[in-house]
Write a protein that binds this DNA or RNA. Structure first.
Length: 476
RNA sequence: GGCCCAUUCGUCUAACGGUUAGGACGCAGCCCUCUCAAGGCUGUAAUACGGGUUCGAUUCCCGUAUGGGCUACCA
């Protein structure tokens, strides 16, 4: 069918009618991985033939999302809107060859037909009237300026699609219509542009969403009409929301951009998406980009749809944060760190929190506490950890810790435990209020690491503020 | 309605006729522990249903059910 010897050429062809979707990102990723694995070429093509719906800034968003994910293409981006001449030439060839024909019904007339068929419970099909107009008459009417569309003359027989994921799929001729290639205003339509471009770009493999499987017989017929080899197809199962409906904006966080803003690392999102419909064949879950590029294969792609599980994405992101160098994490946190602490403090804070933050947003928040004193104390924490005696106990502890000169974990812990013992209370009675005093929250990194990292001046100031605060609000 | 696709733990998936149906997320418990995590250990939970084919079906075939897609002068 196609030459397996020459390297494949694949493409990702999004329509700029929305920002990049996780489903689109996965399609792009699989195309890229396949191209890398097979030493082929990955092409980016923007399908902006729908002038009403396509918006230029959305193309930019798609490009930037792809760049963020590291989905680099070898050729492109090509914009269909600037390839109109190509489509015009192709349609003329098709008409001249008799593979396509002009049809002069108006949209309104067709609408009436469709409604009639609907009412009668019949499946609507175009009458095919345009097929019977002689080429001469067709040319004459077109020259006279009569409005018309151009339709493809579909072949009479069953169309067979050999899908690399689904196997052989047959489409009976009754199911296919002479569909429109060019609108009456001269605009070429999606299916037509896709095939002309795939042919012109010598695309060998089409990896795309399952939603296009039913369109594929149209494309096969079009490639035949164009007189070019039919590429191989691989249709990927849809990505679903947790309600098992096709993932959409309704589900929230369907766009790559939203995950970026939520503090998900591009490496983690790519890893997660790679495993949504593909598996390396063993139990590995965390794969490097190199491993994916080396091991990806179409025959390990599953056919069924997959539910996008944000919980697992978060887990995977946490895995990446746990392993990433602190300097790198700090750089990734930058967008959320308006007022970062000194670099050395920030890096140490990251080490303290790398197993506690699932996203860079959470990490940034943790790091920020080392830069600025807590403005509020967690209300539940105050209620739970501040008892009538707490202010007094903390006051005594404060005196003792203020005398510590070697401000490191060992001496600090010793000071706290000694103070607890001296007061005849458990260490926890001091530990928990201290954490609340220093960070404003009741959970976090091991306390003495926090105290040490904060430094004497800052730690004492926060403790004093806290003691003042609880003394003031305590009933006397 | 017509045509097409899909169906293994709640979720992502492995097992390409023979496995105690494996791993991961989640959840639960235990260990560790100043809290919360992380980590370790243990547990929970699946072949949609009905027929075939076969010595033997998660695996192949046919129905049914459920979900999804397409059926535009959208993409």
């Amino acid at each position: 069918m196609h030459e397996s010897s020459s390297p494949p050429r694949v493409r990702f062809a999004p329509s700029p009618t929305g920002s990049l979707h996780v489903g689109g990102a996965r399609t792009a990723l699989y195309n890229l991985l396949f191209a890398r694995r097979e030493k082929g070429t990955f092409i980016l093509r923007i399908e902006d033939t729908d002038v009403e719906r396509s918006r230029e800034e959305l193309s930019g968003q798609i490009l930037s999302a792809m760049e963020w994910l590291g989905l680099d293409y070898n050729e492109g981006p090509f914009y269909q809107s600037s390839r109109m001449e190509l489509y015009r030439a192709a349609i003329e060839r098709l008409i001249a060859r008799g593979s396509a024909y002009r049809a002069f019904e108006t949209a309104e007339e067709l609408d009436v037909e469709r409604k009639k068929a609907d009412a009668a419970g019949r499946a609507y099909r175009y009458s095919g009237a345009g097929r019977d107009i002689s080429p001469d008459e067709s040319d004459r009417r077109a020259r006279a300026g009569e409005r018309h569309v151009v339709r493809l003359k579909m072949p009479a027989g069953t169309i067979v699609v050999e899908d690399l994921v689904r196997g052989r799929v047959e489409f009976p001729p009754e199911a296919l219509d002479d569909f429109v290639l060019v609108r009456s205003d001269g605009h070429p339509l999606y299916h037509f542009c896709v095939c002309v471009d795939d042919a012109e770009m010598r695309i060998t493999h089409v990896l795309r969403g399952d939603d296009h499987l039913a369109n594929t017989p149209k494309h096969v017929a079009l490639f035949d009409a164009l007189g070019v080899p039919v590429p191989a197809f691989a249709h990927l199962g849809m990505i679903l929301g947790t309600d098992r409906k096709k993932l959409s904006k309704r589900h929230g966080a369907a766009a790559v951009e939203e995950w970026r803003e939520a503090g998900i690392l591009p490496e983690a999102l790519v890893n997660f998406l790679a495993l949504l419909g593909w598996s390396p064949g063993d139990d590995r879950e965390i794969l490097t980009r190199e491993e994916m590029e080396r091991e990806f294969s179409i025959d390990r792609i599953g056919a069924s749809p997959s539910v996008f599980d944000p919980e697992k994405l978060l887990w995977m992101n946490a895995q990446y944060i746990a392993k990433m160098p602190a300097t790198e994490i700090l750089a990734r946190c930058a967008p959320w760190l308006a007022a970062p602490p000194p670099r050395e403090v920030a890096l140490a804070a990251i080490e303290l929190h790398r197993t506690r933050a699932r996203t860079t947003v959470e990490m940034a928040r943790a790091v920020a506490t080392y830069a600025s004193d807590p403005e509020i104390y967690e209300p539940d924490g105050l209620k739970k950890q501040v008892k009538p005696d707490t202010a007094a106990e903390m006051g005594k502890f404060l005196e003792r810790i203020a005398a510590v000169s070697d401000w490191t974990v060992g001496p600090l812990e010793a000071a706290l435990r000694a103070s607890a013992e001296e007061q005849g209370i458990s260490a926890g009675k001091l530990i928990h209020p201290t954490r609340l005093a220093l960070t404003g929250v009741t959970v976090g990194a091991p306390l003495f690491d926090v105290v040490a990292l904060l430094g004497k001046e800052t730690a004492l100031r926060r403790l004093r503020n806290f003691v003042d605060r609880i003394s003031a609000s305590e009933p006397t």
